[in-house]
Simulated assay, not measured.
Amino acid sequence: MALLTLAEAKAQLDIDTDAHDAELLAYVEAVTPVIEQFTGPVENRTVTEQVNSRSNLLALSQAPVVSLTSLTPVLTGGQAVDVGDLAVDSAAGVVRRLDGGSFAGGPWTAVYVAGRGTVSPTINLAARIMVQHLWRTQYGAARGMVGGGDDVSVTEPIAGWGYAVPYRVLQLLEPFKAPPGVA
């Protein structure tokens, strides 16, 4: 599952030849981490990490969470927890025991799939627009693009994002914004 395919980027840019595929693929691949910095993981990936808890909750670092694969204590001799006995708040990346118990005996090694399961059409559109915005740098002054064109002037940077991410992309991604402390 790709956030954006080469074919989708070519369609957005009205490119019908293969002449720029290698270069355009670099743009397509560069868009994913920028989008995911704002939304958290979109493309599904397996994550293995150590987590600690002093309560009955474990907070995974990458949300949303598609599924929890395993939860085992790091220390030898500890008992793995059956993932069927756990509830995962997918959006927040928080794991809790269904029996109300705590996560004693940690730290724990959590293996899970982070991402969204499917790419929302809105996130895909934001990625298409971002590739289009970045691809415009190919034109330079020849097409009147000095100073930012119609996206935003380089003298008006977006707080925390700079000029690479136009307002329209941020507005499309707003409903998918990662919770604080995630992404």
Rank of each mutant, 00 (worst) to 15 (best):
D150L: 15
W161L: 11
T137G: 10
S153M: 11
G140V: 02
G147C: 08
G140P: 06
G147S: 13
A159T: 15
I158A: 13
G148P: 02
R143G: 05
V154Y: 11
V152I: 10
Y163V: 09
W161C: 06
V152H: 10
V165N: 07
R128M: 14
V146I: 14
L134K: 07
A126L: 00
E156P: 02
S153I: 07
V146G: 05
Y139A: 04
T155I: 11
L134E: 12
I158R: 15
E156K: 12
G148K: 10
N124A: 14
I158K: 15
I123G: 14
W135H: 05
Q132K: 08
I123N: 15
G140R: 11
V165D: 00
L134I: 01
A142S: 15
A142I: 13
M130D: 02
I123K: 14
A141I: 14
W161F: 15
P157D: 14
M145K: 00
V165I: 15
V146W: 04
Q138L: 04
G140F: 01
W135M: 03
E156W: 08
R136E: 07
A127W: 09
I158M: 11
A126T: 12
N124L: 06
V165Q: 06
Q138E: 01
A159H: 10
T137H: 02
A164R: 06
G162C: 03
R143I: 08
G162S: 06
L134C: 03
D151N: 07
R136Y: 03
V154M: 09
V165S: 06
L134Y: 00
V146D: 13
V152Y: 07
E156C: 05
A164D: 09
I129G: 03
G140E: 12
A127G: 08
V131G: 04
H133Q: 06
D150I: 14
L125I: 07
V131Q: 03
D150E: 13
